[in-house]
């Protein structure tokens, strides 16, 4: 027994009908592994927010999920425009989502704040014009 699981997802850009598929699948797997409901809740919410962000802002990207017996690490990597002001983006209600996205009910400016709230560690590595890598860590137990 290795006690390690690695999952990888490619997120297509600009397709809202598929946004949430990856986090939905991870949620199902975590439940099947008997991970605590609280950790499942955190992953479900923070990963979904990250997935949606990739679709809205970065034309998709990749998600790597590593599960060990102590924590779940989710790395969301995109080649989008990058985040200009991370501190501002972390503020509840701040959003740069275009109108067409807001019309779908997204872009409330709660993406990053919710990812922070529903994770045990959140690291944002971003470079303007090159892309963003968001790492979410949720502890198990």
């Amino acid at each position: 027994m290795t006690g390690k699981i690695h999952l990888n997802y490619v997120i297509p850009g600009d397709d809202f009908t598929r946004a949430g598929e990856a986090s939905g699948e991870v949620k199902k797997k975590l439940k099947q592994m008997g991970v605590s409901p609280e950790a499942v809740r955190k992953v479900a919410i923070s990963m979904y927010e990250g997935e949606i962000n990739m679709v809205i802002h970065a034309n998709g990207g990749t998600i790597d999920v590593d599960i060990s017996t102590t924590d779940i690490t989710i790395v969301l990597k995109d080649n989008g425009p990058g985040i200009k002001d991370v501190a501002l983006a972390m503020q509840a209600g701040y959003s740069t989502a275009p109108d067409k996205v807001r019309a779908l009910g997204f872009g409330a400016g709660m993406g990053l704040p919710n990812m922070k709230k529903y994770s045990d560690n959140l690291i944002i590595d971003t470079k303007l014009g090159y892309g963003t890598t968001v790492t979410i860590v949720v502890k198990i137990g």
Partner: peptide, 23 residues
């Protein structure tokens, strides 16, 4: 009470091992 009937194994390690085999 929550009844985790869909879990793959009897504990986290066994379930993870089985999940890897499923993959």
């Amino acid at each position: 009470e929550y009844e985790p009937v869909f879990t793959l194994g009897s504990n986290l390690l066994e379930s993870m091992d089985r999940m890897a085999k499923v993959e």
